[in-house]
Design a binder for these strands. Structure first.
Length: 558
RNA sequence: UGACCCAUGGUGUAACGGUAGCACUACUGAUUUUGGUUCAGUCAGUUAAGGUUCGAAUCCUUAUGGGUCAACCA
């Protein structure tokens, strides 16, 4: 690629950046304000990460700020627990909001807006049941029609609405509706409900309110109150934009503008809160932060770094068409970052004992690099002695042609140690291989090898004398199909039965005793791992973030 | 049967009337004390048909395909 192309590539903007640049260039705004508006009724997932990176990224890039605003207009489903997790996740991703707001902060103001609408004959109290309202609404192909309640006087509406607020009616008895157009081809415009009665306890306003605004009468107004310049949401809200603009115009308030992008979908998982909640409730996973969940907290526990998630959202970009991003890209982003930062350690998952028959002495100290990609990463000391363990799958009695590992009579290097040769296979009564008697080449020591022996394979290993037993959780994709929601039957029919394999007693080099939850490791030739927060000093648990690329396994599968 | 949104390699995304590019994936090969990394390379795309134009992925029309909308959810 030449320099010119590079410059061009750098200039290429997504459609939202183009809108913002145009608005800035025309002088429409001097700086911009965006918001991230989660409803506190569930945990954030990787799809939200896109929205977060987009909203915060836009203001970082172009100047201005981003508010965190909780869209807490439905007290029945919302809870403080979710508020806290959402805040933690955003911070962990590396973003700072300017203000922490709640739609419920604006309930008084929203009430006044409603009064204004009623006073101008643009809203009315409707006594119909929800079934009646649905019936009168028509269908996508047939226009709806108004009922007699739409004819109520301003005075009567004012009185009724105040009575709603004061708790004079039961849930569902009355609603406040905007008087727009029952024949609009846009169903959302057919006199949408603005307020409903809910005698429910709100996580912030307590029992102050008996009525709560609907999304359409809260979201846009909150945007406006905060002077949000660019209100970015997903495509499902396109039809709502007409109401959004109608209300801003009729209320004569700050004209925030709504722009929509297509929500990002990830293959081999589900993203809807309903389905994620089901996975948790029906115990398919251990919780919202189960390392197999696509939630931010799940990804964190799995060992993904904020950097890798931001990189991922960057690479997938934004668009307006339906999409399913391959899980492989997320994994690539994880490896990309982890390769640079992860400390290399050796862990044997399925041990096979190796005895070095010609090794004299108690043992010795060797040195191995913490990270070959990081020149400042330093080294660690590892102990070496006569008895070691290697991976059982690194030995084959009758190896295929391109097998570079250990086999009778064959030689391999032990990483950062010596070259060994397999001389004898020891079996138990049942004929199982239980030990390999090998000889080592004293002059093949790592870094000062004068043996002249050339080996194709290098194995990881641990010292029998001081290795420690740890638990390893090998995680894999949660579903066996790309899009579980798209298949016949229940999405849970497609759960991957092998999404978690637990290795009870893997043998790890002692350096891992010092592992912290924030550490990232590469277990040599195995993959990237991180310490699970459920670990104790005597029982370490490591979660596999992602495997290493394995071209040998791939070749074997063919 | 209505309205709206969308359509570029397997996937995601650029090209803003003028050479279809980038990344991931897949596949070759080189390097390698991780079958990792790194490096070099290969395969692979404008939904279709008309129209406008010297020139169309881009503008227009129609068709086709996908999605959204009939919650007192957001």
């Amino acid at each position: 690629m030449n320099v010119e192309n590079k410059a061009e590539e750098q200039k290429s903007l997504n459609f939202l950046e183009e809108i913002v640049e145009a608005d800035l260039a025309s002088g429409k705004y001097k700086s911009i304000v965006t918001r991230f508006p989660p409803e506190p009724n569930g945990y954030l997932h990787i799809g939200h990460a896109s929205s977060i990176c987009l909203n915060f990224g836009l203001t970082q890039q172009y100047g201005g700020y981003t508010n965190l605003r909780f869209d807490d207009t439905n007290p029945v489903t919302e809870d403080t627990e979710y508020v806290e997790s959402i805040k933690q996740d955003i911070q962990w991703l590396g973003f700072e909001w300017k203000n922490e707001f709640y739609a419920s902060d604006y309930f008084d103001q929203l009430f006044d807006f409603a009064i204004k609408l009623i006073s101008e004959g643009l809203a009315y109290v409707d006594d119909s049941t929800s079934e009646e309202i649905a019936a009168q609404k028509g269908t996508p192909t047939q226009p709806g029609h108004r009922n007699q309640f739409a004819e109520r006087s301003v005075a009567e509406n004012l009185e009724l609405f105040a009575a709603m607020r004061d708790g004079k009616y039961k849930d569902g008895e009355k609603v406040l509706r905007a008087k727009i157009d029952m024949t609009s081809p846009n169903m959302i415009m057919r006199d949408p409900i603005l307020y409903r009665i809910k005698h429910a306890h709100h996580h912030r306003t307590g029992d102050k309110w008996n009525i709560y605004p609907m999304y359409d009468f809260a979201h846009g107004q909150s945007d406006s109150i905060e002077h949000i310049t660019h209100s970015v949401c997903t495509m499902e809200f396109v039809p709502h934009r007409e109401v959004y603009n109608w209300l801003i115009e009729k209320l004569d308030i700050y004209p925030s503008r709504q722009y929509e992008f297509a929500r990002r979908n990830l293959s081999h998982t589900v993203m809807s809160k309903r389905k994620l909640l089901q996975l948790v409730n029906e115990k398919y996973v251990s919780g919202w932060d189960d390392p197999r969940m696509p939630t931010i907290s799940g990804l964190r526990r799995r060992g993904f770094t904020p950097e890798s998630i931001r990189d991922f959202t960057d690479r997938i970009g934004v668009g307006k068409r339906d999409n399913i991003v391959e899980l492989g890209l997320l994994e690539f982003c994880a490896r990309e970052h982890l390769n640079k930062i992860a400390l290399r350690r050796m862990v044997v998952f399925d041990p096979l004992k190796v005895v070095l028959t010609n090794y004299e002495g108690a043992g010795e100290l060797l040195s191995s690099e913490n990270n070959p990609e990081d020149p400042n990463g330093g080294n660690r000391e590892i102990t070496f002695s006569k008895e070691l363990y290697i991976e059982r799958e690194d030995f084959m009695e009758e190896p295929p042609k391109k097998y570079f590992r250990l086999a009778p009579g064959k030689q391999v290097r032990l990483k950062s140690a010596y070259i060994i040769q397999c001389d004898e296979v020891v079996r138990d009564e049942a004929g199982n291989v239980i030990q390999l008697n090998c000889s080592y080449f004293p002059n093949s020591k790592s870094g000062e090898d004068t043996s002249g022996i050339h080996v194709k394979g290098t194995l990881h290993w641990v010292n029998a004398k001081d290795c420690i037993a740890v638990q390893v959780n090998e995680y894999d994709r949660l579903f066996t199909v790309e899009n579980p929601s798209d298949e016949e039957g229940a999405f849970t029919d497609y759960i991957n039965k092998d999404s978690l394999k637990i290795v009870d007693k893997a043998l790890a080099e002692p350096a891992l005793k010092a592992a912290l939850v924030t550490d990232r490791f590469q277990f040599l030739r195995k993959g990237y791992f991180t310490l699970d927060p459920d670990s104790t000093a005597t029982h370490l648990i490591f979660n596999r973030t992602v495997t290493l690329k394995d071209s040998w396994a791939k070749a074997g599968a063919k």
